[in-house]
Design a protein around this nucleic acid. Structure first.
Lengths: 185, 185, 185, 185
DNA sequence: AATGAATGAGTATTCATTCAT
DNA sequence: AATGAATGAATACTCATTCAT
């Protein structure tokens, strides 16, 4: 059910997805959908939460402090990019796109986004500690940019249907750009 | 009229904006709106075009090849960021968000986006020529990232209502990150 | 003005004709149309009256009592058919089609239709008097049928776009059918 | 549902009938109407088809070749007239009135009208074969006229609200007129 | 638990009519 | 007299939501 909802919302967006779409994707009757949610908004939020659970599991993966931070960061980037590409709803959440539809949930969303940042922040701080990243980085702002860049790639694929090759090229270019910028002077 | 439309579409998105919204924002009757457009879609596209005209005017400003490219890029970045913040519809266009609503216009949009890239590409190439940027940059992919980063900032403001200070911090961090990454080895 | 209205109403019908259609056909501004009529209904009625004036002029033509009634009837039929083909609004009026749109004018219309019948009735009565038509004809009902048959032809052309040849064939067949039926036993 | 639609379209015509009219006549909500049709057009066509089904069933009734054709024709005329009076939508179809509203369906309608003619043609040909009708009749054109005359009566009733008595008188007169005209010389 | 027919509020669009210029 | 921009009531159609079965 929630997966059907996720699929539909991903494909058509919140407004354009009808409860009928969800119901028929899930091969149940429309009324049945309402057994699992209060209303369309609620369904959307549940669907996001569902994807987020997988996301936080993913994030929980251990960050090995022995490995050089730049390597870690590249790794994290790749993994996150891959995940977000598979879960565009999460991408929508992170990019703030959904905030417009749910003004009431803004602060909740902000919190979720914060969570997603924490891991990048950790790696950056580790890097500074290891002496591979510049000490005077604005860690939080930088983390945000890094996340944004991953998102950009993920959203690009879903929204503009660029060929995968180009997306990868862009991601590679992003990494290069960024790693140099992080380096200690 | 087009400005009212721009305001509304920006605030509520395409679907959630009703022609009544636009009409009452413009303080005219609903029928009057239809004197200036064929359709809601048409209105949206006109509103975007209206903002884009200002954008292309902005872009037409001369890029002085005597100035160092890194300086130019910073300048361009600031100016573009400022502009996009004032014209979120353009941001939506550039970020590919609108493509979902108007599949028929995708190629047209892509072209517009290309235009917007050209200036960044130019500056990058100038920088390579000047010897301040690395010669082996993937110019197009890099340009795309740079644009994405500006957009990210602009969208952030409109969608998540972060305090301006934080947005500026993020933009500064982005610049720093990026300029280093562009440098010649 | 009235001719433009006539043309438009003929082509598109009452509902589908917009005041803009009439105005642009008459090459004046929409407001100008309202100088010549109170509203759309009024315009329609004036347009019909305009055509009817020509019709009553036509009907006023002298019926020569010396000529055999069957010949007269054939003549009248041809002339009326030709006229109605040129003035489909009159045909609509006669066929009762417009009554639905203007329930308030029904009795007025009925009167106009009566006028149109009178001439046929006269010829039939002349024929009875001459002894060429059966004395026990239901004159009024028969007149109505004859009119109907002419109308049918006229409407056919405008509504179904049959080739002229076929319409003529039908009119010839109608005449033959009818003249035999009118004959004295 | 279809009957409500038929009633409304009959009473007010296609344009003037609103979906609300149909819905409230059928004592359901507007949305419910859309469960049974795609469109207003579609609803109209379905309503016509609904009436037509009854019509073709009616036409399917056996034409006994043993009976004299003039008798058969009178019978057919009476039955058809009665039917068309009860189903004015069919009358509108046959008279070509609906063609203007649905240019796209013109050929489909023409075909339906052809079907309706076939039976009259058959009786006429039977009559010629029996020697009661003139051999040189233009069968098709004549059939068309006969149909037209029945229609005229039916439409008359619905559109002008003549007293039934007068309609019957007209139909009787029509029959008399016609049967004489069909006779062998 | 599951269904899906019924609902009706919400929205885009049209067009007769008005009125300041 | 003539204009045509502005109006807003009217109307087709959609879809989230309910509820009897």
């Amino acid at each position: 059910m929630l997966e059907s909802a996720g699929r539909c919302f991903t494909r058509y967006g919140f407004k354009k997805t009808s409860m009928d779409d969800v119901a028929s994707d899930a091969r149940v009757a429309k009324g049945t959908v309402y057994l699992y949610c209060e209303n369309k908004q609620d369904l959307f939020l549940r669907a996001i939460e569902h994807e987020l659970r997988a996301w936080t599991d993913e994030l929980a993966t251990f960050i090995d402090p022995e490995r050089p931070a730049d390597e870690l960061l590249a790794d994290l980037g790749r993994r996150d990019a891959a995940f977000v590409e598979q879960h565009p709803l999460v991408a929508d959440l992170l990019s703030g796109m959904v905030d417009g539809e749910f003004p009431a949930f803004r602060s909740r969303f902000e919190e979720l986004r914060s969570t997603a940042l924490r891991h990048i922040v950790e790696v950056l701080e580790l890097g500074i500690h290891q002496g591979v990243f510049a000490a005077d980085l604005d860690v939080r702002a930088t983390a945000r940019i890094l996340r944004e860049m991953q998102l950009a790639g993920a959203l690009l694929r879903h929204r503009t249907e660029l060929p995968v090759k180009q997306v990868r090229r862009q991601q590679a270019a992003a990494l290069r750009l960024v790693l140099k910028g992080l380096e200690r002077r």
